[in-house]
Design a protein around this nucleic acid. Sequence first.
DNA 1: TCCCCGCTTGCTCATGTGAGCAGGATCGCC
DNA 2: GGCGATCCTGCTCACATGAGCAAGCGGGGA
Lengths: 314, 314
Amino acid sequence: MDEVDELLSIRAAELYYEENKTQDEIGQALRLTRWKVGRLLAQAKQRGFIRIEILHPRARRLPIERRLREERGLDDAIVVSTAGVQSPEELQERTAQAAADYLTALRPVPRTLGVSWGRTLFEISQHLRNGWATGVNVVQINGGVSLNRRPGTAAATAVGIAQKGGGSATLLPSPAILERLATKEAIESDRVVAGVIELARSADAYLFSAGAADHSSVHVESGYLSPADVDLLVQKGAVGDVVGRYIDSDGNIVDPALDARTVGLTLDELRAAPLAVAVVAGTAKHAVADAVVRSGLCSVLVTDEATALHLLDG
Amino acid sequence: MDEVDELLSIRAAELYYEENKTQDEIGQALRLTRWKVGRLLAQAKQRGFIRIEILHPRARRLPIERRLREERGLDDAIVVSTAGVQSPEELQERTAQAAADYLTALRPVPRTLGVSWGRTLFEISQHLRNGWATGVNVVQINGGVSLNRRPGTAAATAVGIAQKGGGSATLLPSPAILERLATKEAIESDRVVAGVIELARSADAYLFSAGAADHSSVHVESGYLSPADVDLLVQKGAVGDVVGRYIDSDGNIVDPALDARTVGLTLDELRAAPLAVAVVAGTAKHAVADAVVRSGLCSVLVTDEATALHLLDG
DNA sequence: TCCCCGCTTGCTCATGTGAGCAGGATCGCC
DNA sequence: GGCGATCCTGCTCACATGAGCAAGCGGGGA
């Protein structure tokens, strides 16, 4: 395509997309046949001169979703558009909304749903509508009794999801991380706790998020880890956590000792699940998102466009 | 349109614009008739959910051009797209290119073209192609012998435009602004100078830019005005200059004494011209652009999208 | 110089799409 | 509850568009 044709294709595109002229009219204006105009428009599209964006909080990016499925081997992917997003909060909200939509449309409706907790999960629970499912049992899959601020967020999340889905919630009455291994083993051997974990293992589906390995983590906020602990984990290669377990960019446990003191499902149990839905969005979580997908921690990913492109193109 | 339809229209738009499905296929996927799909798509467009952009340095915004013509009474308007612009320089270049394109396509080809000088005009001269006209005579319409740096930019501009147009240039051998009124009057009564100005008055068309009233002005750079002079002009209400004459937001001369010492065509002579093409782009020039258009200094405006929207919507 | 190959052009035809219309559902109002 | 007005739906039809094809054009090699 020489320069003259390139310019003509731009003029044609202006008349076609901005002025709503027919290809025939454009042909008359530019002294071309209508077929030539059609070809110029096709070339303008093909060479990427025409960008069509869907501006809506609920808009998704289907081509990126397909690429994620095909190139990353995911069973499904939901990618929300970042077009018009003003703040990280808005992105987070769009993603939570999309996750809620995905759950609502999920067939067959899961009878037992294992969930983690955190800011993302809480927001998803808020975006779910009453009656999104009929009689879903929600089980907490990792410990979450908060040590200081925000008491009950973990519980509120699971209960909220369950109530709106016309079912009940089973909470895991245990801290996320214990200070001593012995305490953790004692708690896990408790009949109630063991029963909940057993129920969690039998869930039809899991819904969880991932946290970035930085000081804004819920583990720091909840008092399970100090900022210094996180720094140390980062030094060891941690990119973030999934259900409270810190992983490196290959999805391996960074600190086995710490991991042994963490209560809840193991990552391998998640990997073996037939349906594991990860919801991860935001620039800060690009690295964890990559680790989660690469190491097969989820079979379905709900994320934003920028994160998805990071996974696909580096 | 209720929320369900809104969501459906987004889903339909995704399938239509991103996946290239036919409305019929979308109907099958979403369990709608193809007519319903067509209506949903029409509504999505109408409600502004669909944005189509033409990404190309030469792309123009025809609807904005029309609005400028209709709402601002311009004979013609050329508005370059700002989509994908990275720097002010790039915007300036796109606009200069568009001005060069406009001149090239201008019919009838002007026999005598009056031009001002400055960064914008110089860039336009560089973007013109050899043979853009056949035998055009270029006349300088305002004084421009540079006092210090950049000697000859004014001359190079006029000569460049003339040479590429297969004609010759007539330069105005005078400074832009003189220190004393008497000197200015003496210069203007010089036979050569008077002859050039007379020729300038008889030009078929004028091409000029406008400068912002700030320290980056060519008048400061060329040594005709000190930064303090400019500050004073701004205090008096100046928003910028046209052919060396500083105007306020209504297009009135800000400092008649200074204006009397300025050599070249007057603003009223420009206003009376049948074809006066102003080329004004960039955020810094929004205010002057507004003054130029409001006070009828140009009949044709070449500008960028952002400036144009400023003119239209405030 | 001539010929061959490949690209472009203008076309036919099938399909996709928007305008306009009539019937029917829905809503508000009495 | 009855009635009218309004909106919505599914349709016909005319128009716009893209796929595919044959002829023409131009450039490069023998």
